[in-house]
Design a protein around this nucleic acid. Structure first.
Lengths: 150, 150
DNA sequence: GTTCGTGCAAATCCTTTGCAGCGAC
DNA sequence: GTCGCTGCAAAGGATTTGCACGAAC
């Protein structure tokens, strides 16, 4: 029995798209929508395994891609060691604040950006669909750790 | 004989860092700093091959990573089919306007962003190093192509 | 009962790496 | 002459795919 309205809505949408609601999909859905972190595929797999142990990594990938295509999850690809992260808690585009030392990702509160895309439509004729804003820096904890080790 | 001052400066910096200036590196340097496009590793390789035919893809990767570490080139990782792109023409962070149909990347003129990172230092204690801003949409040409094929 | 989804393993793609020989300095 | 750079081929990691079985509907 699922009481989270967001999840209920996604389940409805998936059903109407002709998708079946398997226990694996439900477990992945719960993990990605309820986590405040920005998880890797491996992390999602590990968390899902606690609730539904036999789920495979391949199924995790298939499901997050499905959710991404449905607009219910954001895929954040990074170059280098940070890899790909998934954000299912807040599917609308929003800025990310990323620590380059520990790779932690924060969601800062900035409204400014949301108005901006509109400007580009007039200037360049683009039809704006979404945007991605990443701010890279060093978090307070890592700054402290660095000054300690110097 | 190299007359481009930007390239001259990078060559100097590399020499002082103990790096050797090989013909391959110089050819790659010219390609990435002079192209207004946001090239893939394959594209860089193809363009360099015109000037210095025996250059390998591995050397392209090694050199762009070197330039990235020196801060002379920006690496733009995308998830999905767009892959990784390199921008050596404008090494300072700046917004990108990306067509989701043809994957073309434009550099829109927006100053607004440059002031913003400072705000985050006070609010979250992060030491801001750089940022990345991507706006996704459909370019005028692809919009026209789509309305034609409907 | 019919599909569709799953899980496994293999395949694929992109990027990095180990190493022998070459070339910049 | 030394040591870093190159190019090859092989390794590596992340993600996708093909297929037979099992499960949702």
């Amino acid at each position: 029995m699922q009481t989270n309205p967001r999840i209920q809505g996604i389940v409805e949408k998936l059903k109407q798209a002709g998708c079946r609601i398997t226990p694996q999909r439900l477990a992945i859905l719960e993990v990605v929508t309820e986590s405040r972190d920005h998880l890797t595929a491996e992390q999602i797999h590990a968390l899902v395994a606690q609730r539904f142990p036999t789920t495979s990594l391949a199924t995790v990938y298939k499901t997050v891609n499905l959710l991404r295509d449905e607009g219910e999850l954001i895929e954040l690809g990074f170059s280098g060691s940070a890899g790909t992260r998934y954000d299912g808690a807040r599917p609308a585009p929003h800025p990310h604040l990323i620590c380059v030392r520990c790779n932690r990702i924060l969601d800062p509160e900035i409204r400014l950006f949301d108005e901006l895309p509109g400007e580009l439509t007039e200037s360049y004729g683009y039809r704006i669909l979404s945007h991605r804003i990443d701010i890279y820096g060093i978090c307070p904890e890592c700054q402290a750790a660095e000054s300690r080790s110097q």
